[in-house]
């Protein structure tokens, strides 16, 4: 499958990239690792007029410890993340998540920024032009209907990123650069939960940096897929728990991937945990609650009921691991 024709731009600074993007935000795409973008382009899911390559911009790939925590440049590759000693020592769950993306070459090519900003996925959307031509054009691809849920003008595609749950569990913030300057926001606000436009980036905005606060508490990442490699998570889970000196839980974050139009945080389940003790009873209660807060759809070959089941099992496993440690 050949790539469609496009104009190719190599900006020298991020500002230049942002301006180029703003000049034609609908017809332009940003290229980072390319493992998501180029597949979509080959399949003609997107046919941009212009490709703006971020990789030729210097100093966008870094991992540096500062006083607010760890700063990671958006162009840092997943492979570099997984090799970083700092990350392995301070945020081992992030190392794990990076090592679970695709396979070796995907990790070498893929970047943290690209991984966070990857497109939502759907079995009716991430297919070739021929395949999609068998059915009516779906809403996400520019048509009127959704093949997952037969309602017009709604898209139920699924967010399947590995890193977002962990980084959200770590309470990360992101720095975004646009034509009008920089802004910072909590990572979770990057995601709109709108399948058609899953990211909240405004016209010309580019993800520049990820900030992870000083390590505290304990974080786990568990990913479930059929085979031990290559696949996106069928369901994955990041769990973060902070305990007080008396052993009571002071804060918890439960974030899933693969079960909604963005990373899904089980807020009610999190609340249930606060001030409690991590025991069998709580594990039962919390995992039952959490699966009520997710909304898996039939966007992959796995059934929603099964995804829900696995989500519960993953959370139970993670909580048990936390209890034992």
């Amino acid at each position: 499958m050949r790539l469609p024709r496009f104009e190719y731009i190599e900006p020298r600074t991020l500002k230049e990239a942002a301006n180029a993007l703003a000049a034609d935000s609908k017809g332009s795409v940003l290229l980072a690792g390319g493992t998501d973008l180029l597949v979509s382009m080959k399949q003609r899911v997107i046919q941009p007029k212009r490709v703006i390559n971020l990789k030729t911009i210097p100093r966008l790939a870094y991992i540096s410890n500062g006083k607010e925590g760890l700063r990671i440049g958006a162009l840092t590759t997943l492979h570099d993340l997984s090799l970083s000693r700092t990350i392995r020592e301070q945020y081992p769950a992030l190392t794990e998540a990076a090592k679970e993306v695709g396979a070796y070459a995907h990790q070498v090519m893929g970047t943290i920024g690209g991984n966070l900003c990857q497109g939502n996925r759907c079995r009716f959307y991430n297919q070739s032009a021929f395949w999609r031509g068998v059915r009516r054009l779906c809403f996400k691809a520019g048509g009127e209907i959704c093949h997952v849920v037969r309602k017009p003008k709604e898209c139920h595609s699924t967010y399947c990123g590995d890193l977002a749950p962990v980084l959200m569990a770590l309470d990360s913030r992101i720095k975004i650069l646009g034509p009008h300057g920089e802004r910072a926001l909590p990572l979770k606000r990057l995601f709109t939960r709108d399948g058609k436009r899953p990211l909240s980036l405004k016209k010309g905005e580019v993800l520049k940096e990820i900030l992870i606060p000083e390590p505290s508490g304990k974080t786990l990442y568990l990913k479930w897929r059929l085979r031990g490699s290559l696949e996106f998570p069928v369901v994955s889970l990041a769990l973060h728990i902070e305990k007080g000196t008396n052993g009571a839980i002071e804060g918890a974050r439960i974030i899933f991937s693969g079960v909604g139009p963005g990373p899904v945080e089980a807020l009610e389940a999190e609340k249930m945990m606060v001030n409690g003790l991590l025991d069998e009873e709580m594990i039962e209660k919390v995992s039952d609650q959490a699966v009520r807060e997710i909304s898996p759809m039939r966007t992959s070959i796995h059934s929603p009921a099964f995804k829900r089941k696995i989500a519960g099992i993953l959370l139970r496993q993670a909580l048990e691991q936390m209890m034992k440690s």
Binding site: G34, L38, V39, K42, V51, G102, A105, H106, M109, L230
Partner: peptide, 22 residues
């Protein structure tokens, strides 16, 4: 489409999927 690895080449010593590389 980047899922079989047959097109892997080394770029600066690291494995890349050449089918997904401009």
């Amino acid at each position: 489409l980047g899922t079989c690895g047959a097109c892997t080449v080394l770029i600066d010593g690291k494995p890349h999927l050449s089918c997904l590389t401009l």
